[in-house]
């Protein structure tokens, strides 16, 4: 799957978590910009794992140390694309 195929579903998942219209989500925003807190992040990652049938490495104790980049919406799209390629070859 290319990032362009993945992006709409990521935006939809984050919009639902942030309780805002999906049109308001852009790749440049951070999760904090969207108002998603730490438990919201955990829930969004679960939704992403279910949507793309992938396992996302993420420990809520040390989000910065995780290899899964959640610094922005665009970073998440890229990271999911990479994980999907790795795990569905």
């Amino acid at each position: 799957m290319t990032p362009d195929m993945i992006r709409p579903r990521i935006h939809a998942i984050l919009a639902e978590q942030a309780m805002i219209p999906v049109e308001e989500v852009t790749d440049r925003q951070s999760l904090a910009d969207l108002g998603i807190d730490s438990m919201g992040v955990v829930e969004a990652i679960f939704a992403i794992e279910e949507a793309f049938d992938i396992a996302v490495p993420f420990n809520a104790n040390e989000p910065q140390a995780s290899t899964f980049d959640i610094s922005s919406v665009g970073a998440i799209v890229a990271a999911v694309a990479e994980l999907h390629t790795q795990q569905h070859q």
């Binding site: 955990v42 679960f46 993420f58 420990n59 809520a60 104790n61």
Partner: peptide, 12 residues
């Protein structure tokens, strides 16, 4: 029991 805890992503 462990599977449920895994979900919270707070387990080492």
């Amino acid at each position: 029991g462990v599977k449920a805890w895994e979900g919270l992503r707070v387990m080492s």
